[in-house]
Design a protein around this nucleic acid. Structure first.
Lengths: 126, 126, 126, 126
DNA sequence: GTGGTCTAGACCACT
DNA sequence: GTGGTCTAGACCACG
């Protein structure tokens, strides 16, 4: 599990870490129960401060993607979100879809792109 | 064209304005050539600072969605973007797709959600 | 709204701040819509670091007790939690009740103590 | 007497053990004079470090809930605490009551919840 | 001037 | 050795 962080991005570093961990879990790269790297280790490896990684981990914990085992270490949760709330993503999706549509992309093309995004983390075709 | 702004959102206000204008254009609510409200007017109507609206308009102009009319107004552009670059949206889409997948949503369900997002803005006049 | 922090307590400072804000809201000392002190101001007033206050505010925001208005400032939310989930407090309550019982406190006495705790923030009898 | 420990909880494991022992005593599940499991046994059964159980037992001894038997065992004390000091619990109770109140719970409802918590540990054999 | 983010250290509770 | 907490600075996006 190697993270690639863009220090010049407008997206906060802790959010980039969070996103890549989510992608890693969805892609099967990080299996449920697997131990995540230490805050210190990841901070050192990425060249960022502990607190930044800490913030990312805290966010992931709050979202239920990972859990901090008190006996040391942080592990990937078994069942993250629970019920699938379709409405949650629609706001961001709508804007992306609008941009794609205005850029000339057709509905089928967009749907294919979405399916690709869905499967890109599938582990058996990427 | 009425904007609904959430002052408590993490998304900057100028970005919310920008997004809703894009949605309005994609949905046909704002037709090409149509005149947008004045910065002053929109700022007053939404209860935000003029600089905020200015920033949103500047961004929209830079992205090609709107153009400054010679007579002082701002109008919706005719042909917004260039070619549809599929790679541009994939980063955000991947994260959304990963979240949806981890929330238990299937591929078809997600694709349907994406199609709905695509059509939600222009289903009845585009 | 004056906070009293115990630097020697086992309870983290940010949690003490959080608790006292919750008490202030419940007690009517902090009315919905009222503006909370700035992170910097509160930090200066309490003699703690900005980040500590920031953490308390972030927690309160996450819990829905307060909301950060993008136009500057943090205000008390209107309706915090929504549905009353009785099961949430029972764990902590059980332990407290057990300790009280073992200390010789009767059921009625304990119930009276709980009612007092409930009303102590009521604003019209404290 | 079976303990259920949550390794992902914010509450330290030794505190969880302590709390459940207190609940067990208050509930009559652990009668005065009854022998508690060995540190080693409990540690093995729960999958935690012996030092953790040791810490919990030490805390319980210090609080007077259990006493070290001369022959090497640990037994439940006869008369645990001294006089019931109402002030001790009020701080935690106040916060819980404030949260409940803000969640929309009425005073009677809260008092009923407290009575239930009081009786939940010893309703059928105390 | 606000909150959000980040850094480079440090101490502590827990296991 | 882990995560949790805190400090004393700093820069930036936003409004």
């Amino acid at each position: 599990m190697l993270l690639s962080l863009d220090m010049a991005s407008k997206t906060p570093i802790y959010m980039q870490i969070r996103d890549q961990v989510v992608l890693g879990i969805a892609g099967g790269e990080l299996a449920p129960g697997e131990k995540l790297p230490t805050i210190r280790a990841l901070a050192g490896q990425c060249g960022v401060n502990m607190m930044t990684v800490n913030k990312a981990y805290a966010l992931l914990k709050q979202e239920g993607y990972i859990t901090a085992d008190r006996r040391g270490g942080t592990v990937v949760s078994g069942s993250p979100g629970g019920p699938a709330l379709s409405g949650k993503y629609s706001a961001a999706l709508k804007v992306i879809a609008a941009e794609a549509r205005l850029a000339g992309m057709g509905e089928d093309e967009f749907a294919a792109l979405c399916r690709e995004a869905y499967n890109n983390g599938g582990g058996n075709n990427g």
